[in-house]
Write a protein that binds this DNA or RNA. Structure first.
Lengths: 216, 216
DNA sequence: GCCCACTAGTTAAACTTTTCACAAATTATC
DNA sequence: GATAATTTGTGAAAAGTTTAACTAGTGGGC
């Protein structure tokens, strides 16, 4: 089943499937059916099959999926078979926390450099990662083979930082600044907005509970 | 336009609109049209109108929306007209970083308490917020009038923490643990998965750039 | 080697979300 | 007060996503 464009919803789920497979492999399982995966992790089996079928025929009818084999496929599809070097822009509270978080989440992502505009921070080492001058981003990014940037600066600086990142050829950016950004053609931007998430919970709390007990 | 259930996509956008309105108000604007908002923040004007119309007729035809008035409406709809007390479960790297982050993001959310199972952490004060024993969650949550909980514990503990939270009557939970959770009926769970976000960027990098320059 | 149980891949239907397009309402202008 | 210029609110179309149902392989048991 070949298709032009794969939805981001699908690729996000591939990450989830991969994680589930790791868990099953850890438990010593050799194969798993789409139904088995679905039951265990509260997913829909048809959706799993469909998501996987976009990329090839990985399963065996009557058997299911060989876990090790499917893990390899997904790892490759997601580009996790090679290392990625991450730069975090903004060595403030959030930036350093993210650096720490990703450093200890064992994965193919290495936080290779922090960047800041504050001269008192530049040159410091935070958890073994040096803070560089944001104005030298292009050279430093090249030196460390950065391919993913994380924006963790205050909202008002996010747009100009994004521009700086973009011109130095970075293609993948994760943004934590709570502000809509104008995204250059060349860049894939993924925004995580911690404020929106909280406010959406607040909305839920503000709703009058339904009298009939129907799910909201 | 009354409707049974409001989509979460809609309520998330309400947060965005509210933020845009704050910015416009700060710039001294008095009214704004859906088209004006859309242009300025890269949204779709019909969608803005529709999202707002779910909750009432806030606009004036021929004029647009009165910014102050609409802000008040949205603030109320999102339940941001009253304070919320947040508990963060897990006083590790991520938990403390989030506590810090939310403490300084000026908003109606106050991080009132941290919780952990590690006895060496319990009793400590981190950024002015005390760490309590997770086993006393129900009493402590009651004492601080907690209405939102944030799960920032390792994946393997997330499910049991969620259960503990749920039984003590908390209705809104934000989860940072990268694992699918079984959610009790009474709870609204919002998961933010920092790993999936990164992996989805990795997928993008792994894709061969399209020869015809079509957008991917 | 044939049948049965099982399960992937796929087509089609159902559902959700976004976008379009226009009638209805409002203000400014003459 | 009629006319033109706006701009909302909304019904309908379009696009996208999920779920269900079905077809076609696969392997084990006999």
């Amino acid at each position: 089943m070949k298709v032009d464009k794969i939805s981001e919803l699908t690729t996000n789920r591939l990450s989830v499937y991969l994680r589930c497979l790791k868990q099953l492999a850890g438990a010593g399982e050799k194969t798993v059916s789409s139904e088995g995966l679905a039951k265990k992790f509260h997913l829909n089996s048809a959706q799993i099959r469909k998501d996987l079928a976009y990329f090839g025929e990985f399963g065996v009818r009557g058997v299911g999926y060989y876990i090790d084999e499917l893990r390899e496929h997904l790892t490759k599809i997601l580009g996790l078979d090679r290392p990625h070097n991450v730069a975090i822009i903004g060595a403030g509270r959030l930036g350093t926390a993210l650096a720490d978080y990703y450093r200890f989440a064992q994965s193919n992502f290495t936080v290779a450099a922090l960047f800041d505009a504050d001269s008192t921070k530049i040159g410091q080492s935070i958890g073994g990662v040096e803070v560089f001058d944001i104005n030298n981003f292009p050279q430093t990014a090249e030196r460390f083979s950065i391919d993913v940037a994380v924006i963790a600066v205050p909202a008002e600086f996010a747009q100009s930082v994004l521009q700086q990142i973009a011109v130095s050829g970075i293609k993948a950016v994760m943004n934590f600044a709570p502000i809509p950004l104008q995204v250059p053609e060349s860049v894939k931007l993924k925004t995580v907005d911690l404020t929106i998430s909280l406010e959406s919970l607040s909305y839920f709390l503000a709703q009058p509970p339904l009298a009939n007990g129907k799910k909201n």
